[in-house]
């Protein structure tokens, strides 16, 4: 399975709040970041949680976000970042 995004590419995390078992933390939904690295594809945990096979596998990415953009009142340095692992179906081109 080919990765849809490349390292260095700007991405947007979809804002969605579906029910179920989700691995996209609430605080990062709707935020923009940059692909830090492309990881392997893994069985989709949102399906595994309900006893299904999780196939097709979903590509996983590590996405880096600037803390100052994640938290409007962030107290820290401008270079501070947070890296989050996000599955491809949560990402869009920014």
């Amino acid at each position: 399975m080919n990765a849809r995004f490349n390292a260095g590419e700007k991405v947007h995390v979809r804002w969605a709040d579906p029910p179920g078992h989700l691995r996209t933390p609430y605080y990062i939904r709707g935020k923009n970041g940059v692909i830090e690295r492309v990881l392997d594809a893994f069985a989709n945990p949102e399906e595994l949680a309900f006893g299904r096979d999780g196939l097709p596998k979903q590509r996983l990415y590590r996405v880096r976000f600037r803390q100052a953009e994640v938290w409007p009142d962030y107290q820290g340095q401008p270079g501070d970042t947070v890296d989050v692992e996000i599955y491809e179906h949560w990402l869009e081109r920014a």
Binding site: Q67, G76, D80, T81, D83, E85
Partner: peptide
């Protein structure tokens, strides 16, 4: 500071 949130695999 670079925080790493281990959200998946």
């Amino acid at each position: 500071v670079r925080v790493h949130d281990s959200t998946a695999d």
